[in-house]
Nucleic acid binder design. Structure first.
Lengths: 159, 159
DNA sequence: AAATACATGTTGCAAATGCAACAATCTTAT
DNA sequence: ATAAGATTGTTGCATTTGCAACATGTATTT
């Protein structure tokens, strides 16, 4: 059999969009981590992301929040424990579809924390923004969506 | 202060390219994991990726391989231990820039394994390929590269 | 009405990951 | 020539992550 997987005809992982996305995600994460190391000791980058997500999706139950932040229920609960201990969020029992759920909301202290951080990161945020135009970002967003739709045609994704 | 971070003017994490990439990467990974659960018990998806990378980059030292597969040296060594135990790769001492390094190469058994897997996954691979055209993928690749370059202007990335 | 299935959140555990420290070896500086 | 620094790979440890099991409460089925 002369398939010759090593030659250039075969698409290797390194050449896939998946690899490029992983690589770029690593860059984004490193940027975030380095900025937080320098400029924020109050919360972790992960907690910041969750707090930001809660701030614009108030009154979500934990499972719905988990879907948004791309983590499972267990880890979502743990991050919320930490944010709650720091007083940035509150949890309260409520119902959704006649089911008991724990909903999450941001506190005033959490809002203040977010505003402080946003001000602190503003220079970097603006520097990044200047490097991109809206059109490019929209195209990128659409491309990524197209990939996800393609994957959904092959397997069922439960996130 | 009426910054009002909750309104739509502020860019939340959920709306960033970083989030879209993370989400899409998760889809890709889930696809890979599900395919391997169904169709491959010999090696893990991670090991497949490393084996594939070695197959088209023969004679790399471990550190250079680590950079390619986006892992640190420690984890790269561990994955290689597993692949070596299964007989799919060999490691041998060599020098690079007058330094002692351990280089990695794929064995015939490893090549056979890759070819078997590629044949096994061929239907899915072709199905995915049909859903994209070369032009879209090139644009996506360029967009992601542009993001990485922008990040490099702000922080130094050492992967 | 009882049994089964489903949804939500928590806990425990194992695997994966990252980081710092270390050993070995080579280069550069004083 | 000796000391300091750099590169590579390994080991140990702490953190993160995901998965399965469980408890609780609801919906559905028989």
């Amino acid at each position: 059999m002369e398939t010759n997987i090593i030659d250039k005809n075969f698409l290797h992982y390194i050449d896939t969009p998946s690899y490029d996305m992983e690589l770029t995600s690593k860059y984004c994460k490193t940027l975030l981590v380095q900025l937080f190391n320098k400029m924020c000791s109050e919360i972790s980058p992960e907690e910041f992301i969750v707090l930001d997500t809660i701030s614009c999706n108030r009154g979500l139950c934990q499972r719905d929040l988990a879907k948004l932040i791309l983590k499972d229920r267990a880890n979502t609960g743990r991050i919320l424990d930490s944010l709650q201990n720091k007083g940035f969020i509150v949890r309260y029992n409520d119902t959704k579809n006649n089911r008991l759920v724990r909903k999450v909301d941001i506190t005033q202290s959490g809002i203040d924390m977010l505003e402080v951080l946003i001000l602190r990161f503003k220079p970097y945020h603006e520097k990044m923004c200047k490097l991109f135009n809206e059109q490019d970002l929209l195209i990128l967003k659409a491309s990524l969506k197209k990939i996800r739709d393609a994957i959904l045609q092959i397997v069922e994704i439960q996130i």
